Amino acid sequence: MSKPDDASNLPAPIVAAIAGIPAALVPASVKALDRLIGATVDIPVAWLEYQKAKIVSKTEAFKTIDGAITKTAATKAEANEQFADRALDNLVRKSYRQLDNKEAVSAAMLDDLRDNPVEPDISAEQNKESAVIDDDWLNVFERYAEDASTERMQKLWGRVLAGEVRKPGKYGMRTLRFLSEFSQADALEFSAFCQNSFGGLAPKALIKTDKDISNLLAMEASGLIQGASGMGLQVTLTPDSAGRAFLIEKPLIVMFTGMPETPVKVEIISLTPLGQELVTLLPGRVPREAARLVGMAVKTDQIKAAFLMLVGQNGSATPMEILWQEEVPATPVVHNS
């Protein structure tokens, strides 16, 4: 395991936590952590074991931050001592609250990196040679992370940062803005839809569109899905010369077999690029279960079977299970008299 740069402002507990993630992800992780918790008030020792300090009294734990912001507070107070005290107290409280939120996001990121070290759609070699996280992206992310006061949002932002560490550029600025306004009710609605989607699409056979579709229209208006209104959408599966067609959501593949080079049209509702970014952040979604549902829903006269396969790091696909297979009529037995 490689060690973080000695010049890092990170506190010892966080440096120790990095030991649980792959060495290839350490540089990007340190950069992200330094931005979030290493230099909150331009003074590295501002960490001060703040989790033990309570923002209800002037203890020794506050003195470092007090010294860093007293000058600013006094200037704003214009020599008004009472105003200066209130301003200083508010700034100290705000600084600790923001730091507490960012530490929780950082911890969630490290947990995710430890449990899921490699992005499923990139190889280990690509992961090792990943690009550097963009500074502008980190600037925007930090503002959202410091306002994440609930456990749900802290874990959500932690998964976002972990994904960006593994694969810089994975989440766009628009996704960050959307997530900052993504309510729990909206997240549950979208999560329920995505249980029936795989490879960026959901067969309409799995989605209830015969009654109230207000929830679908709301997701469409938000830019998460398309095809819920109007003429709808279709996807065309065209089996190759060997009779195989594929739906892919790495590392899983649903392979359909049927009549070679005979197009098959399926009515669908599809995820937009924004929706496809967000689906990777849903904690309750199990891609394998979604693959099963979608594979079972695509049944036509031209499709004869569906199989679930797993893509390895070397690009090879390994069969996992038969989702369904058309029964071959038994050949009648002829008895000679």
Results as ranks from 00 to 15, higher is better:
19 A>N: 14
323 L>E: 01
121 D>V: 03
13 P>W: 11
131 A>Y: 02
213 I>R: 12
240 D>K: 15
65 I>Y: 00
250 K>G: 00
184 Q>N: 08
94 K>W: 07
6 D>H: 12
248 I>H: 08
332 P>D: 14
37 I>G: 03
289 E>P: 00
223 G>C: 13
5 D>G: 04
111 D>N: 10
168 P>C: 07
132 V>I: 12
222 S>G: 12
176 L>R: 11
40 T>C: 09
138 L>I: 13
13 P>V: 10
154 Q>R: 15
143 R>G: 08
191 S>A: 15
90 N>I: 02
307 F>C: 00
17 A>Q: 15
180 S>Y: 06
84 A>T: 05
237 L>S: 06
68 A>G: 03
272 T>W: 01
195 Q>S: 08
34 D>L: 05
185 A>V: 09
292 R>V: 08
81 E>D: 10
269 I>S: 00
268 I>P: 00
218 A>P: 03
205 A>W: 00
123 S>M: 05
103 E>R: 10
130 S>Q: 15
333 V>P: 02
39 A>T: 10
16 A>Q: 11
169 G>C: 10
29 S>C: 12
190 F>K: 01
88 L>I: 06
96 Y>G: 06
113 L>Y: 04
170 K>N: 14
32 A>S: 11
310 L>H: 05
25 L>F: 12
250 K>T: 10
105 V>Q: 05
29 S>W: 04
28 A>K: 10
173 M>F: 12
272 T>I: 02
277 E>N: 02
284 G>C: 04
133 I>S: 13
236 T>P: 00
120 P>S: 03
155 K>H: 06
202 A>M: 06
274 L>T: 03
8 S>E: 06
235 V>M: 11
62 F>Y: 07
76 K>W: 11
278 L>R: 04
244 R>G: 01
177 R>E: 10
289 E>I: 12
215 N>T: 14
177 R>L: 09
162 A>Q: 07
126 Q>N: 14
2 S>F: 05
127 N>K: 14
275 G>H: 01
270 S>Y: 00
87 A>W: 09
199 G>Q: 03
247 L>Y: 13
154 Q>H: 07
216 L>T: 06
316 S>L: 04
174 R>H: 13
139 N>P: 01
4 P>A: 05
21 I>H: 07
68 A>F: 00
252 L>M: 07
282 L>F: 02
275 G>K: 02
234 Q>P: 00
194 C>Q: 09
276 Q>R: 15
25 L>G: 02
282 L>N: 05
212 D>I: 02
49 E>N: 11
185 A>C: 00
166 R>V: 01
76 K>P: 00
61 A>K: 04
309 M>L: 15
182 F>N: 09
13 P>A: 13
184 Q>E: 12
64 T>N: 01
300 T>H: 03
148 A>W: 01
331 T>W: 01
289 E>G: 01
64 T>S: 09
252 L>W: 15
171 Y>W: 02
283 P>V: 11
134 D>I: 11
162 A>W: 05
147 D>G: 09
219 M>W: 08
214 S>D: 09
64 T>F: 08
